[in-house]
Design a protein around this nucleic acid. Structure first.
Lengths: 334, 334
DNA sequence: AAGGTAATTGTAAGCGCTTAAAAAAGTTAT
DNA sequence: ATAACTTTTTTAAGCGCTTACAATTACCTT
């Protein structure tokens, strides 16, 4: 049987409230007793029961993280960052992978509520009214990660997708490319799909290359789809010499396709990715990509949630973190 | 304020114990009242407080997962499998990433204990006596995943590393290779390092190729280290025509090194990986590799832990799951 | 030494739930 | 109609902890 506060009290020869005070406000207990209690705690390996405390404080010191796809390496970094922040803040972390399934997501929110998580980080997904209402009805505070809401007032941490995409495409233009395509996220159900597309458009307009605006093919998250999208893109526009991919995984799909068609990257076609996953540096060729501060995004999201939980609000409701173009081997001067 | 069982009782005009019974043994409550209670529950969106239940049942319906490196894609599949099993079994999952840090691991066990997780899956790490004792002292049941213990009696789920490695190397021999090297895990602190090395040795002996036994270089988990290890390996043995890598990430490191040296894969050198990560199919060239049933390993580990929790023991203490060689593009007939 | 104040400790209520035991309500047999 | 059961419901204790409040002890003053 796990020792309880009674066992400690008995061993130390004090009442349970004294033991409790030793743990919660040690200075209010006279030194002699305090050390006896501490000794008993040590000897019994006593640890307070989180259920009992939770019942009283109505807090679990646990945060929830909702991610759409654990197999996307992006989230490995998010998780690391968030977990480190949780350790620092004295919280535990409960991660739920929705596999982009609406029902799963909703039922995970229920699970979070039942387990009384103190707050949730909602990552990389659109905050549909349905979700917002559920979360609000459950009275669980939450923040958005790599997402934001225009409709509702919800704190968020993300990267400036439009600007980041713009810079990536601008880089391609500066490299001398004139026929530039894009592999984007399907705009439906996508948070970063539209802004990254807008960034592409802005760069094109600015560069006087508006004829490229239609050179866009779409995929949904996975390598294989990006591969097929690239096929469509190049079938329709064989003259393309550079492709902006809105995800590193897409860039890999694109490069694989080009490889299979014996088109050299970066020799004939330059490819720029997005995210700077760990894989971006392992792929052949190493990917030129727009780096997101992935770890930091996770870290900040947890901090922000904590701020929301402890102060009731948040200083910077919509926080943008810095991206950075990283030039490697998949792009080249035209 | 979240509604409590009292609110439901009041609304339904019954005592709280009736409400409780509606939830726990509905047949013991007469239909008329039962439906009134159910209605009240629905109307109030009532959900029992997990703290209160936990206090009584001494169960959290939460499992813990301890993994060494969330950035290793291997664990993404493990997590998916385990989470799906948890959903099926009515459990929540708490994941902790130790970053291979002993102190972190130990403190996560404390956190698990405090949060009263019902059991732990301990993945891909050696069960040191220190860990075993801590877990035992905390009285938390646990199972090993992609690991096992000869020293202690602990249920485990894994793949037959020795046999799998043996088959991979045998495949290379059958392809006609005679000068075969290996990029292995450092044997210290490694679970699968030794058996995979043994498999390599066995295949070599069987093939009468014992001169290869010393053609082994070691790395610890990461791409960059595998890259360097490959450099060592080829510096010492430039005649190698095939490399068995004990992880897909190593295979990528090896191939990257060879690429940088203008050595063609599979043209001049064949490379076989291990794991069959999702990336194995995205890399260029696609990796020939020994597939582990990653998702299933996670799933089974959770099931096994559940079996241990509910029955107190486990039918098959040391369970081996099937591996399978998958031939893709990184290997070729010599 | 008595009285007053401050510091320390103990008692008991209560967090939201389950469940054994007691009480109430409903059935059946006489 | 009443006794003797059976079924259903309520009462109350308790899970392990915190904390307001009461009780005790220690320490000053005069």
């Amino acid at each position: 049987m796990k020792p309880t506060i009674r066992d400690v009290a008995k061993m130390a020869g004090v009442s349970i409230s004294t033991v409790s005070r030793v743990m919660n406000s040690p200075e209010s207990v006279v030194e002699a007793k305090r050390s006896r209690v501490l000794e008993a705690i040590e000897k019994l390996q006593y640890q307070p029961n989180a259920f009992a405390r939770g019942l009283i404080y109505r807090k679990s010191f646990t945060l929830g993280l909702l991610i759409p796809d654990i197999e996307n390496m992006y989230f490995a970094g998010i998780i690391r960052g968030m977990q480190d922040a949780c350790v620092k803040l004295g919280y535990s972390l409960m991660i739920c992978n929705t596999d982009r399934d609406k029902d799963r997501l909703l039922s995970y929110i229920d699970a979070f509520r039942e387990k009384q998580v103190d707050g949730i980080v909602f990552a990389s997904d659109i905050l549909y009214p349905e979700y917002y209402e559920k979360l609000t009805a459950c009275r669980i505070p939450f923040v958005l990660l790599s997402s934001h809401s225009d409709e509702f007032e919800v704190p968020s941490v993300e990267v400036d997708d439009e600007e980041a995409a713009y810079e990536a495409v601008k880089f391609l233009i500066e490299l001398g490319h004139r026929e530039i395509g894009m592999i984007g996220f399907n705009h439906v159900n996508s948070v970063s799909g539209p802004p990254r597309y807008e960034g592409f458009i802005r760069a094109m307009k600015e560069g006087g290359l508006t004829h490229n605006i239609e050179k866009v093919a779409y995929a949904e998250h996975r390598f294989e789809q990006a591969y097929h999208a690239t096929h469509e893109l190049f079938s329709a526009h064989p003259d393309i010499t550079a492709v902006f991919c809105v995800a590193d995984e897409f860039a890999m799909g694109t490069i694989s396709y080009l490889k299979d068609r014996n088109i050299l990257v970066p020799g004939q076609v330059s490819v720029v990715g997005f995210d700077n996953l760990r894989m971006a540096n392992m792929f052949i060729p190493k990917l030129t990509t727009v780096a997101q501060p992935i770890y930091e995004l996770g870290y900040r999201a947890a901090e922000k949630l904590h701020e929301l939980l402890t102060t009731g609000s948040v200083k910077v409701p919509k926080e943008m973190m810095k991206h950075k173009l990283i030039v490697r081997e998949s792009s080249r001067q035209r």
